[in-house]
Write a protein that binds this DNA or RNA. Structure first.
Lengths: 363, 363
DNA sequence: TAGCTTTTTGCAATCGTTTGCAGTCTATCG
DNA sequence: CGATAGACTGCAAACGATTGCAAAAAGCTA
């Protein structure tokens, strides 16, 4: 069907092996034949067959990315970043969707290694530790966003404690003392870590932690709605809500809208992770950016390094944290505890907010 | 490294060929050996190597989906649907992102056929017709959402003429006579077809087409903003806007919000294609659903059929249309034909409208 | 039991590459 | 001028499966 190495060799009147060496540039061929063959190959439109090559070399030039879904904005940009990076290096990305379901994850993992993928970036459910660990012997693996505690795989994480801390502190600096928190499930790393960052910021400001102000729930809009209702129904409702679970944002907005609560006048709102429409929403929604782009890039970096290292990548560092940063928009306002003044939009001096940096963390 | 067919055959004391036949179920083996071999294979944890198999059979069990991006909600659900369907059939999906850029599309296409994909579903840019046509000789291809006029490839399209017609008629039935249209680029199928559906509905209702009410632009929020401004600045502004280009929705909403225009009281708004947050938005946004899910499913159906047919799929039908449907929510209101449409200086009296009084009145 | 058909099995080639080994050629040096 | 090192090249065996063909085994009839 298509042009094979044999054809090229034949056209150039050399043996297949010479052709192979010349084209792969193994250096064992004379400059002249090498050039001649590259030319002929080009003329004939020869494109090496990765399958045949893979059979011999055991590589596939395929790298898989396994995420939970594609509706999550973070996963979208991660997928785009990973795909772009890999393509530039001649790899193809295999995007798989695991739905945060251990069974599906497990199935997908086995198919992937069957296909002899050269590398894997995975957002683990956390329930397939042993399998992942076993696979890691055959294939370089990097975990993304979530850690699988049952493994010691290299992991690239958002700095959720810091992000939540940053966000909470921002609200405190604006004068808020009663800050509601809507956060994800507490059996996930991110859920726990965001809560802890929130708590730390409060403690640092000598604000007593009030459990009635904290609502932990699932990663769904519904959680935001019930959470918001609960918080707003309190006898002393919060003056700001930090939605540390971006799937919940929609729910919160619906409730504030239903109740005709003006943002940021009546309530300040700060969210976690960006969404394309946050900027376009009125008021534009301030966020803590978890750095999805950086996360993906770092994950690719790590993976590539492992793929090159060929096994001896045990250089100690097992966990990387990508710094979060605050993006101030218009949904949080300064509070003056003394009077009830006109709302003032905080000016965005975003240069100060760029605290993002990539730093390795110790195990 | 892993268990090969040879190992299985050896363990069962049969030849490799027998093992192969027994496991692939070619039917040329006795029931008994077949069972015995499947058992042994299972015990040994044998998993066939798709690369080796592919080399011989010329198949890869890989099917590619090439879309423009992942931020578009339709592409997201399509990707999820395709992945799910294919996985169930033992295929892996290769998701590629072409950015609606002919050069990238072209590059990706060649890498894909290099990888000997078994099939391809592509949202074509429309600029690589010849290449697609050539590839179609080697690989079953189905076009999705957009047609590439330079080819005669099987194509699964949304019924945009009907969808636009449906939406426009809905607005007309609500009593609107001046209906603004914000639509995509007129050099794309969807852009043209949606315009034509709009025009047909108008004609059918004996409403003269007014070109000042039509704004065609790029697939970006900015287009929505400029379009909305243009329409609302008219001396006789429309009483309803049909945003037939869902990337533009954000821009339109920003403008209505900036100008304190209440939806649906002051202006009815109808959009094309669903977004997760449309339902949660206040007011919930009515849409014409293009049936992304159905589109993807049909595309997969067609592709599979072609892949089975092995070349003789010339059964005449070259184009499939998936019906659109109207989803009524709260952003369109009935107009009293007696009273004149109220133009300029709209008061914000909608209880459900964006409540924040403070807007940085930029622009 | 012989002779025939039908099933089941094994041998070996093949897919398109890569690569160890051995052979050929060129050039250099004594 | 002949020997020899060094640079190129080609042969052939892999990689792990599938598959046509022929041989062996089994089943059947008479």
């Amino acid at each position: 069907m298509s042009v094979t190495l044999k054809d090229v060799a034949h056209a150039a009147r050399v043996s297949i092996s010479t052709a192979s060496r010349a084209l792969t540039g193994t250096g064992l061929t004379s400059e002249r034949t090498q050039q001649r063959l590259t030319r002929i190959a080009r003329e004939l439109g020869y494109r090496p067959n990765p399958i045949a090559r893979g059979l011999k070399t055991g590589q596939s030039r395929l790298v898989a990315l396994l995420v939970h879904n594609l509706t999550n904005a973070s996963f979208q940009v991660m997928a785009e970043v990973v795909q772009a990076r890999l393509k530039a290096l001649g790899y193809q990305m295999l995007l798989c969707i695991g739905g945060d379901d251990p069974k599906q994850e497990s199935d997908t993992l086995t198919t992937l290694v069957d296909h002899r993928i050269d590398g894997l970036i995975v957002v683990p459910t956390g329930k397939n530790g042993p399998q992942l660990k076993a696979l890691a012997k055959d294939v370089p693996i990097v975990c993304l966003v979530r850690r699988d505690d049952a493994t010691d795989l290299e992991t690239v994480l958002a700095d959720d404690p810091q992000g939540a801390y940053l966000g909470t502190r921002h609200l405190i600096e604006l004068g808020h003392r009663r800050i509601g928190l809507i956060v994800g499930r507490q059996d996930t790393t991110s859920g726990r870590e965001r809560l802890s960052g929130y708590v730390r910021a409060l403690r640092e400001a000598d604000i007593a932690k009030d459990d009635t102000l904290i609502h932990a729930g699932h990663f769904e809009p519904e959680t935001g709605a019930t959470g918001a209702r609960k918080l707003l129904d309190l006898s002393r409702p919060p003056s700001a809500i930090f939605v540390a679970n971006h799937e919940a944002t929609l729910g919160v907005l619906r409730v504030t809208s239903e109740r005709n609560i003006a943002i940021p006048d009546d309530l300040s709102l700060l969210c976690y992770e960006d969404m394309p429409w946050f900027e376009w929403h009125r008021p534009a929604i301030s966020i803590v950016d978890n750095g999805a782009r950086d996360l993906a890039n770092l994950a690719v970096d790590r993976l590539l390094q492992r793929m090159d290292a060929k096994g001896n990548g045990n250089d100690g560092v097992r966990e990387y944290r990508v710094g979060a940063r605050l993006i101030k928009r218009d949904s949080c306002r300064q509070i003056d505890p003394a009077s009830k003044p006109k709302p003032s939009i905080p000016k965005s001096k975003s240069s100060a907010a760029k605290s993002s940096a990539v730093k390795p963390a110790k195990v």
